[in-house]
């Protein structure tokens, strides 16, 4: 068992958990992910690593409850644990391969959307630790759904928060903030965008126009996470890549987002049914015959 030593509700449906997983904690780098499983019947759920403490042997994950699997995860309490917790998976962020001198010369912009703020945080934190201050845009639907604001503030160069409904910070989509910042005279050498697929798509459309190289982190459907199943294949520059072993980060200007978004809906009906079954519990009998 991989013990949960801390659990925190960040906002209405986003949870943070710190989990004992010494092997992962010792070897992980920013940009990588883990796959977790709550119990013997559980799905394998991929989650980006939000933070690690090699000394304590813990990994911090942040997740939003969207389906039956994540709702079951959210029910776990401190002291309980995950049946399985494997990683680190995927390639580390490309930034990790660059020298500190090179990074210091660069003006880096992070664009985080919703729960995507969690995987952005370790990268910004790591850069901060080597003396590189990156600008960060965090977009959220509304003020109540904003996460990790204080943590991010502590490690970011400039932090720009925007809400879709204008309830906090700037108002509007993250793309509007990018445009504003560039119009205000900011120049960026690289942009790293992590969030919902649709957000990354529109960020990439804009940064292509603005000629800012952009890296995105994809979260397609996957099973094993080691390259074995091929469920996570995405088209990048016209070539098939496996997000689990070649990614999860890719050149955003080369990603076929429409295809990736379509592939994400593959099990939508099955997932919807699983969620319904979970929510209705014993009262769900499937008597209508629509579940077969």
């Amino acid at each position: 068992m991989y013990k949960i030593i801390k659990k925190q509700l960040l906002t209405s449906n986003i949870y943070l958990m710190e989990v004992e997983a010494p092997r992962v904690a010792k070897s992980c780098k920013p940009g990588q992910f883990v796959i977790v499983r709550t119990d013997d019947e559980g799905e394998r759920i991929p989650l980006t690593i939000c933070d690690n403490d090699a000394f304590k042997g813990t990994i911090t994950i942040v997740f939003q409850t969207v389906g039956a699997g994540t709702k079951i995860m959210a029910e776990l309490k401190e002291g309980e644990g995950f049946k399985d917790f494997v990683g680190p998976l995927g390639q580390p962020s490309e930034l990790c391969n660059e020298s500190v001198e090179d990074l210091k010369k660069k003006k880096i912009l992070f664009v985080a959307g919703g729960v995507g703020t969690a995987p952005v945080y370790p990268q910004v934190k790591w850069l901060h630790s080597i003396g590189v201050d990156a600008d960060v845009i965090v977009g959220s639907k509304t003020k109540d759904l904003l996460i990790l604001e204080d943590e991010m503030k502590a490690v970011a160069g400039n932090l720009y928060i925007t809400t879709d409904d204008g309830s906090y910070g700037r108002s509007g989509m993250v793309t509007k903030v990018i445009e504003d910042l560039v119009n205000e005279g900011n120049k960026y050498d690289v942009c790293i965008a992590i969030g919902p697929m649709i957000m990354m798509k529109f960020v990439c459309l804009l940064t292509k126009k603005l000629e800012i190289p952009t890296v995105v982190s994809l979260n397609p459907i996957m099973v094993d996470g080691t390259g074995m199943c091929g469920a996570c294949r995405v088209s990048v520059g016209g070539k098939i890549k496996f997000a689990c072993v070649d990614g999860p980060e890719f050149d955003g200007h080369e990603v076929n987002f429409d295809e990736a978004m379509r592939r994400q809906t593959l099990y939508k009906t099955a997932e919807g049914r699983a969620l319904l079954k979970y929510e209705e519990g014993d009262t769900h009998h499937g008597g209508c015959g629509n579940c077969n």
Binding site: G227, M228, C229, G230, A231, I240, V245, E259
Partner: peptide, 25 residues
């Protein structure tokens, strides 16, 4: 290791799986 695909058009359509994925599920 990694499953092979044919490299023909339409292979990333929804409903195309590697046998590895299908059997693992």
């Amino acid at each position: 290791g990694l499953p092979k695909f044919m490299g023909i058009p339409g292979e990333n359509s929804n409903g195309v799986f590697s046998a590895n994925e299908y059997l693992t599920r």
